[in-house]
Design a protein around this nucleic acid. Structure first.
Length: 269
DNA sequence: AATTTCCTCAACCGCACCCGG
DNA sequence: ACCGGGTGCGGTTGAGGAAAT
């Protein structure tokens, strides 16, 4: 037995090739999902039905969402895991574009092991994880913002040409604002944000570190706390509806360097 | 610079369930 | 009621790459 080789029954195992992917996609286009055991017969693919189904469900499905689990999704996972336990497929149904496998992997790497490791190891690991998360989050936001700017430039240029084009919306109804334009790097200020989704007023916004051993957490923890990219936000007096994060599930992380982050991101519904 | 450790995630496995014959 | 094929689910493994030493 081994990776990428033929088994005794003639089934291939291991990583999928692009040609195998193409054949599977073609099969689904022609016959739809299901009857996975027919794939080998109809498409000449040397993969068993289970392998085909798994490849489609976890990787090839067109509605899959790629990239990092967002803070909002993380809070949903935490909340639903508290309710359902390891019922990954049930949890996945609440996260469009995410697979049970993805959520299961995310949970295992980000939460489960924390119960086993020593405090010093945990701190090292958390710091490393956070560093990576922050980098990936920044890359994602930069990418989204660049796309948004490209779209806006296209619109402006089209408007100049007097042609009708749809106004793009930010992904997942997210509002973005530059820190220097809004909250700056200090606490307690008021800001109004206008977007095509509506108008939101933020006031008395307080940024706190969410180290578990940090006193400010205990003081500011409430149902209104907002968890974003390694930071806990206390959002008082907000017009709008924001997701909540269970207080029990705040992983330790260092204070976010606000000025280094290109954009703040808020979800609104 | 080399080696070790850690992390991520695609893919596999075994079991359970469903459903038609 | 039983059987077998198909499917879904949760647990586990291991390759590859990144980070730490």
């Amino acid at each position: 037995m081994g990776w990428g080789v033929l088994e005794a029954q003639g089934w291939r195992k291991g990583p999928w090739t692009s040609e195998e992917d193409r054949l599977l996609i073609e099969y689904v286009k022609l016959h739809g999902e299901g009857r996975w055991n027919s794939v080998a017969r109809l498409q000449g693919l040397k993969r068993n039905g289970k392998s085909c189904r798994l490849r489609w469900v976890n990787y090839l499905r067109p509605d899959l969402k790629r990239g990092q689990i967002t803070p909002n999704e993380e809070s949903v996972i935490i909340e639903l895991h508290a309710r359902w336990g390891n019922r990954w497929s049930t949890i996945a149904r609440s996260l469009p574009g995410r697979t049970d496998n993805e959520i299961k992997n995310y949970w295992r790497t980000h939460f489960k092991k924390k119960t086993k490791v020593s405090p010093s190891d945990a701190n090292k690991s958390k710091a490393r994880m956070l560093k990576r998360q922050q980098f990936q989050q920044q890359q994602l936001l930069l990418q989204q913002q660049q796309q948004y700017e490209v779209d806006m430039q296209r619109i402006m240029s089209n408007l100049r040409d007097q042609t009708e084009v749809p106004i793009p919306s930010l992904p997942q109804h997210q509002l973005m604002m530059k820190p220097q334009d809004s909250v700056a790097s200090s606490n307690n200020c008021t800001q109004t944000v206008n977007s095509d989704q509506g108008r939101y007023d933020y006031s008395s916004m307080t940024m706190v570190s969410h180290f578990n051993d940090c006193a400010s957490v205990a003081e500011s923890s409430s149902d209104q706390d907002f968890f974003w990219d390694g930071n806990l936000w206390n959002l008082d007096d907000i017009q709008g509806n924001f997701s909540e994060v269970p207080a029990a599930n705040r992983a330790a992380a260092p204070l976010q360097d606000f000025n280094s982050s290109p954009f703040m991101l808020f979800n609104c519904y």
